[in-house]
Amino acid sequence: MLLIGENIHIIAKQVSDAVDKQDKKALQQMAKEQADVGVDYVDLNVGPARKNPEIMGWLAETIQEVVECPLALDSTNPLAVEAGLKVAKWPPLINSASGKGESKERMLPLAAQYKCEVILSVLTDAGIPSDAEARAESIMETAAYANELGIENERLWIDPILLPVSVAQQGVVACMEFTQMLPDLLPGVKSTIGLSNISNGAPEEVRGILNRTYMVMLERYGMHSAIVDAFDAELRDLARGKLPGIVEVIHKVMDGEDVDPASLPPKERDYAKTTKVLMGEILYSHTWLET
């Protein structure tokens, strides 16, 4: 599983302050820390950057001065993304395009023009599709459009759009179903997901286990990469195959094997409980680890 580090995100105060002040050092430090722990891409999220789309170019150059790692250029504004594309040293990833009219017209052509890879989400002008089938229908249409522009499947990273488990538990199951369907729908495509979204709204101290469990579950279904909290060491260990015992517990629960969480050591028990919730077998509540 490839990891895209999400930690340079304009919503984080530390990041927006550094960007405002053009504090190169602070931003370079954040990028270095992510590269040091081995992320495969550093995501640069500048938000819509309506007033100053050029900031992405400056930010990309700043980061590239200190790390040798490809960048994910993250903005809804095609002008900002293009500013990054112009200066990217290593083959970048556009984050992201979608089936929305404006995105098809302005973002996707950038991937064609700069011959780069692009995250393509199932989003359309009608919103987020409701289930796996609706996601399939939407992505088939958008991918066909991308193909027509000359962007072949191998350059598309499909994003099923994940919503928090605390508000849309069925969507969590739908994203897994969709991930399983993907190789048949669009042979050759890659895939990615905004992993931390699953735990948005959950108490801070239990966010990590939701993120990690879901990552392992998705990986099993063929997910190619995830946009993650790069500083979650256990998550990185799981992604690098260093915790086979945990993975085994998660897989057993996924297979419907009779796993009694109470019989497991505390850590495995929590993973087993979390897997059951993310499979949709148990109704989510913030207290799921306590029952």
Binding site: S166, L283, S285, T287
Partner: peptide, 11 residues
């Protein structure tokens, strides 16, 4: 909200 309902019930 069914999720918050469950949380309150647990507590």
């Amino acid at each position: 909200d069914i999720n918050l309902q469950k949380e309150l019930n647990v507590k």
